[in-house]
Design a protein around this nucleic acid. Structure first.
Lengths: 205, 205
DNA sequence: GTCTATAACTCGATAGAC
DNA sequence: GTCTATCGAGTTATAGAC
């Protein structure tokens, strides 16, 4: 079977090994999520992908470039933002909790966790803060800007609760919080987010 | 002036250079807070303290020991816990917010931030989770355990909001949230914590 | 495209002179 | 108590053979 080329068929190079590049990328994603940027070595990624370390450089250049490539959110921000846009302000708390918490249970979780950990470690912090401020939050803030000027604070309070949940559940793995089903957690968190967005904030009155 | 010893005075070794050990400790504290455990080298701490790197080992042993020594909370956990213990459950939200947020504005902030960043980076995570679970949270959980079994989840929800606030304000420095005076923020956060502690949690009913 | 070999560097920790 | 010198391990990244 093997080694003997049937004339006209099965000759030449075998079709890409499920693509070496994407195997590297997958390995990098989970590694970065588990250990954070600093503690991940190109060698360990190469090992996980069962690939030579030099190949990682060959495909992605420097470690930083590999990180950026691996982090690239497979979720379309516009898709998420569109759903939020179509939600009336009175029910945005539940909508956001539902959307975000479910993303964190999806395969995209590794990317998000890796991004968050890197931000906390001070790596790529500008990249992340800009993404947060200019892409995600800036879009929602004007819709909840009441009283005038409170919009940014409101959405950043929401971000703080969401980040804390990410830290507790997916980084520290606090039990039993980490074991609570998403659906229940959404119901618990939604009222908090809703109050931050449209509720009465003592300091603003 | 210099070099000439007046008889009977100013002889012998000069009084300790403000103590080499504490200079090292101070440098380590701010370094760890700014850069996290991983990115701090013993050499860099020694540079900041204007001390030979070998001296750091001489005084504190390994890097881990230096970290623990530098992290050592200047706040007595019992002091904080006592104040919480003396608060009736109905107003614990405000009490906790008041206590914790003010600690984060005190000189102890660097230690707390360093600890948090290390936890997020996966360093010393057992040490931190145990501290959190067994020292801080375990004490409060039984007092808000209603319905039975909800106590742990309740306090961990509180922890999540507090950690998120720490991340947003003191790690990511999100403006304008990072600029809000503590007093106002306490009033904003307290109701959230109170609901988590004693309020109605949809999933529990 | 893939891999070997290695340059160039940083780190923690130690031994030992002074 | 303080410093020099260095070991050994780990890293990114590159050069070049195949």
């Amino acid at each position: 079977m093997s080694g003997v080329a049937e004339p006209g068929r099965r000759t030449g190079r075998r079709p890409g090994n499920l693509d070496t590049g994407s195997r590297i990328l997958d390995a990098a994603r989970t590694r970065f999520a588990q250990n954070g940027y600093d503690k991940v070595s190109i060698r360990s990624v190469a090992d996980d992908a069962e690939v030579d370390p030099a190949l990682v450089h060959h495909y992605f250049g420097t470690k930083r470039q590999l990180f950026i490539a691996s982090i690239e959110l497979p979720v379309d921000p516009d898709f998420v933002l569109d759903q939020i846009r179509q939600t009336p302000p009175e029910s945005m708390g539940a909508a956001i909790a539902e959307l975000i918490l479910n993303i964190w249970e999806s395969p995209q979780r590794d990317s998000v966790v890796a991004l968050f950990r890197s931000a906390m470690a001070g790596q790529e912090v500008d990249l992340i803060r800009n993404f947060l401020l200019q892409v995600v939050l800036r879009d929602v803030a004007p819709r909840v800007d009441n009283p005038v000027g409170s919009g940014s604070i409101r959405v950043q309070l929401v971000a703080s609760q969401l980040m804390g949940l990410l830290a507790a559940r997916h980084v520290l793995h606090l039990d039993p919080l980490a074991q609570v089903p998403v659906g229940e957690l959404v119901d618990v968190i939604a009222p908090t987010l809703q109050r931050y967005l449209t509720g009465h904030l003592p300091a603003q009155s």
